[in-house]
Every structure is written in C-alpha cells, then in structure tokens.
C-alpha cells in the first residue's frame, strides 16, 4: 500500500484508491464499509471500502478475510496482500483522516467530544432506512458487527486497519523534533504504553505534535493538568452575549489587566476618541 501522498503531508486528509477492476464496471457489485482507528488518541482514522461483483462474494471467503478484529497486524498484512492480488475482481478505496483534521474540525465546532465518537453499532434500522432513501436503487444493510457477518466488510476493515497501521508506523512528524520515540503502543488511551508516551512527550506550551488528537479528552486533560494554561477568546461558552460585548469594549478589558501598570487608570472618566477604541489603542501610565 503506497501511502506516499499521506506521508508527504499528514496534516490533511487523503484518499487512496485501487484501480477499478474491469468486471466491476460491467457487473452488479456489493460494497462493504468499515473504519479503523476511531478510539485511539493518536494517528489518523481510516475509512475503508471494499467492493467486488455480487457473483464473486463467496470467492472472498477463500481469501480468508473473515473477522479482522481477531487478527494480528502481520496476519492483516497478509490478508491485504491477498486482496491486492485479487485485483481482477476486488477493488478498494480508503479515506485517511489526519489527526490534525480531526483536532481542528472537531474542536472548532465547539463540541465537547467523548472518546468513542462514532457509533456504528447504533440503531442499524434507522441508518439502513436513511441510506436506502439517500441511494435509491441500492440495497443497504446496516448491522452491528457487520465485519464478522459479511466478508466484504471484513475486507474493508482489513484495508482500513492496514492503512492505519502503516500510517502510524510511518508517521512523518512535520514538527522539527528529531527522532521521535515511536513506542506509543496501540494508541488507545487505556493502553499503559500510550499513556506513558503521552505523559513523556507532553510539551508544556505546545502540548503534542499534530500526530495526537487534541480533541480527545485524554490529551486535553493531560494538557490542562501538566501544560501551561492557555485561554482562548471563545473559552467561556456560558458567557452571554452582553458580557461578550462588554468584553469587547475598553473599560471591562481593564479587569483583565493590572491597573497599576500598563493601562490608563480605571477610575478615569476620560473616554478616548473612537479612533483609538476601535483600534484597541490605550495610553500607558507605566511600562
């Protein structure tokens, strides 16, 4: 699997596809979807799809792509190789979602995330109905534990997991940190190896490299505890509109700054010209 593009820039997400087998263009196909790397606190999340002609569904079984969850990394590699070799009738595609994208898009939406974010074992009927409506003419099956029931999903799962394994292993830190100790375990926050790595590599100002999903509460908590406090303007979500507007004006900003040094005395009734207030320019009474 060539993760070259992703390795080149792992701060954005990236799509990887196999060639589309000719037979898949002329015959009806089935498609399985699965993901890898939902839970871990580090590295990318990968969505994988795998497809093949309906007539060849059973052939997948011979590729031994059964329950991927019980497989070791090496076994998965081998199975992926089998899938690759079957490229005359099996195709796949992957969407690698970088941890940076996860961090920035999740945190920006302001949602306080829990660690298990995607629940594919949720109301299967509902999803099935929704997707059926969305894609008329398709037969949609949504089941819990789909990857152990349907080989095509299992295959997708393998693609996704292998992609994730590779990208985690081959992660090129954009940060200029020299040789980074890659002994971070599974990446699941419950994994003591991962926990230890997170503790060891916490930078008190920056937190972590982009490899880590900052939105995950594990990382957040560690930063809050052991890093320097960082205050963003949108931190007070409860702040009502009035207070927010008041914060924008000069006068209440003074409450954030020591009055004896720096800003003009708060007791001063003098109201500056709007040229200055609009530009947040204040006189100083001392350095």
């Amino acid at each position: 699997m060539d993760l070259g593009d992703f390795e080149a820039d792992n701060s954005v997400s990236c799509r990887l596809t196999s060639e589309v087998p000719d037979v898949c263009r002329s015959e009806d196909c089935c498609l399985g979807i699965d993901e890898a790397g939902r839970g871990p606190v580090l590295g990318p999340m990968v969505y994988g799809i795998c497809y093949c002609p309906v007539s060849r569904k059973e052939d997948l079984k011979s590729l031994k792509v059964a329950d991927s969850k019980t497989l070791t990394e090496a076994e998965r590699e081998e199975l992926f190789q089998n899938l690759s070799d079957a490229k005359d009738y099996v195709g796949w595609a992957l969407q690698i979602i970088s941890p940076n994208t996860i961090s920035t898009s999740m945190l920006q939406s302001g949602v306080q995330l829990k660690e298990v974010f995607v629940d594919t074992v949720g109301p299967a009927e509902k999803y099935e109905e929704k997707l059926s409506q969305r894609f008329p003419g398709l037969e949609v099956t949504v089941r819990p534990k789909a990857d152990s029931l349907f080989p095509i999903v299992s295959a997708a799962s393998i693609c996704a997991k292998v992609a994730r394994d590779h990208s985690v292993k081959g992660w090129g830190f954009t940060e200029d940190l020299g040789e980074v100790d890659k002994d971070y375990g599974s990446g699941y926050p419950g994994d003591p190896k991962t926990k230890a790595w997170l503790l060891k590599f916490l930078d008190p100002v920056f937190g972590y490299p982009q490899f880590i999903r900052f939105s995950w509460s594990t990382a957040k908590r560690l930063m809050d505890d052991k890093g320097f406090a960082v205050y963003w303007e949108d931190d007070d979500e409860e702040e009502n509109g009035e207070r927010a507007a008041a914060r924008m004006k000069n006068t209440s900003m003074l409450t954030y700054f020591k009055s004896s040094t720096g800003s003009t005395a708060p007791g001063n009734a003098h109201q500056s010209h709007r040229f200055f207030t609009e530009r947040r320019l204040q006189g100083l009474d001392a350095l």
Partner: peptide, 27 residues
C-alpha cells in the same frame, strides 16, 4: 488632557519626544 501620569519617551539627548500607546486586546 487627563492630567494623569502618562508614559512618554525622550530620544537621546532629549532631542525628540514620543508617546507610548498599546494595542490591548484580550486573549
């Protein structure tokens, strides 16, 4: 204008006078 103590700067030899303002925004 305000009569309060305010910060200024004299350049070398007191040749020039300068005032000091600060762009002050929260966060």
């Amino acid at each position: 204008s305000t009569d309060a103590a305010s910060l200024y700067l004299f350049s070398s030899g007191d040749v020039g006078l300068y005032e000091v303002k600060a762009f002050t925004e929260d966060c």
